[in-house]
């Protein structure tokens, strides 16, 4: 089972990272979501894989799954929704503003007006 979970983390990471390297915003966002899954599963699994012993206290039961990674991952899931929403909004804004959805902005920073002042 450990092999399954670990390989799932690996495959999610691979697919996510491959998509992050694409040139358009939409696949990059999907890739980041996949990486989020990978990270969440990884963190969750760090507590050990336990089957059938949810951390709900019951009389006469002594063994429970590790609750701490669960609590951490729970908030991580919710926060990652917020992050995804912001990134999607930024992607949307850049698409509507520039009429293309490339992630790379290759304007040369050396030409930015901010340092024009330093030149004689």
């Amino acid at each position: 089972m450990e092999v399954l979970v670990a390989s799932a983390v690996g495959i999610l990471t691979s697919a996510g990272f491959y998509l992050v390297l694409r040139l358009r915003t939409f696949p990059v966002i999907l890739g980041m979501s996949l990486l989020t899954y990978a990270v969440n599963v990884f963190l969750f699994a760090s507590g050990q894989l336990t089957v059938g012993s949810a951390p709900i206290l019951r009389d006469g039961v002594a063994a429970y799954a590790d609750p701490l990674p669960q609590a951490l991952v729970l908030t991580a899931i919710v926060i990652s929704f917020g992050m995804t929403a912001v990134v999607v909004m930024i992607a949307l804004g850049s698409y509507l503003g520039a009429d293309d959805d490339f992630v790379d902005d290759l304007a040369n920073p050396a030409d930015a007006p901010s340092d024009a002042e330093e030149r004689p």
């Binding site: 979970v5 670990a6 690996g10 495959i11 999610l12 990471t13 691979s14 990884f42 699994a45 894989l49």
Partner: peptide
Amino acid sequence: VTVAGAAGLAAMALSYHYL
């Protein structure tokens, strides 16, 4: 694909040994 594969392999190895 090569880079992503390497990254995935690394994540898998880390996760597996962690588990």
